[in-house]
Design a protein around this nucleic acid. Structure first.
Lengths: 175, 175
DNA sequence: ACCTGAACACCGTTCAAGT
DNA sequence: ACCTGAACACCGTTCAAGT
């Protein structure tokens, strides 16, 4: 992970990892099946780094703080984060995050039958924005502009979630 | 592009391209500065393949048909599409698409001062979903499920755009 | 102007051999 | 059980040399 953070994903070679460990590249194959496995491990490490929001918050704040935590983690590991687009969220770390989002959505009043689809769209919107950001698509934009964009994205998603509510609760007015 | 479509991005090597052209790898450096330049060319080729929607449609249909055209192009070139996350949309091909979206947004009544930001969020949401799709994140989902998700994404974005046409400094989406 | 041969410094991965 | 030497089939890229 340290190699990826400082040198990018291309710097994560079997030789670089081996050198970091004071060992020859061939020795790694005793501990990891292939280089793809090593990258999978990196992604899982990233996922377990997302801090889950404290309980007791309103669902809006739970989801909002999780979204911002994901973004902060991505900024810390810009090379590894975009790999999330490539793998189904089936690992323990991925499920942990998805379950947290689902709890927030249930708290919002989204019908149980629609939670999975809403979760997919909300996750994908956050993932797409943050992956764009750390991958370089917004290289010409200021940090201030990106913060504004992200705040608007959060509002868009809260509005979407409220609209997906089955009328069991009154939509909460947003500031 | 043909090599990328059939073998993935990893198959796009200088040697593979050279062989396709009946030439040695070194000959390519007469026509392209570096391999990164070659990939840039691939992305630009992809961008110019997006069919722009016919004029005369309502703004909702213009934006919708553009979104679906982008998705169809991504399905045709799944290896190259995700590279869009890595580059600022500053090339002629990218500008062409962005201008088209901006025209749609202006038609919707979004204030001129907010078109750029709304465009960024709408583009990013589509890009994020489609890149996830072609990169493998939804590998466990059926084509039918993904079509449904995409249709819901379109509705979410139309709702967001409509909310952004109402007054106020902050476009707050409403159901 | 365009292409090639030879060469360099890397890659991931294997296999038999060492401790 | 864990590591290494040697080797293989690749990479991108350069440079001088060829036509």
């Amino acid at each position: 992970m340290a190699i990826a953070d400082t040198g990018g994903l291309d710097a994560v070679t079997m030789q670089a990892v081996a050198e970091r460990l004071g060992v020859t590249p061939m020795a790694l194959y005793r501990h990891v099946g292939t280089k793809a496995d090593l990258l999978d491990g990196l992604v899982e490490l990233l996922l377990t780094e997302f801090p889950l929001p404290p309980p007791g918050l309103a669902w809006q704040d739970r989801l909002g703080s999780l979204a911002r935590a994901v973004r902060a983690t991505a900024h810390r590991h810009p090379a590894v984060f975009p790999l999330l687009l490539k793998r189904p969220a089936t690992t323990p770390g991925a499920r942990q995050v998805r379950d947290e989002i689902n709890r927030g959505l249930e708290g919002s009043g989204v019908g149980a039958g629609r939670v999975a689809q809403v979760e997919r769209l909300v996750s994908t919107a956050i993932l797409g924005f943050v992956a764009s950001e750390v991958s370089g698509r917004f290289a010409n934009h200021s940090a201030r502009q990106l913060d504004d964009d992200f705040a608007l994205l959060e509002r868009m998603l809260l509005g979407f979630i409220e609209a997906a509510t089955q009328g069991g609760r009154d939509p909460t007015p947003r500031p």
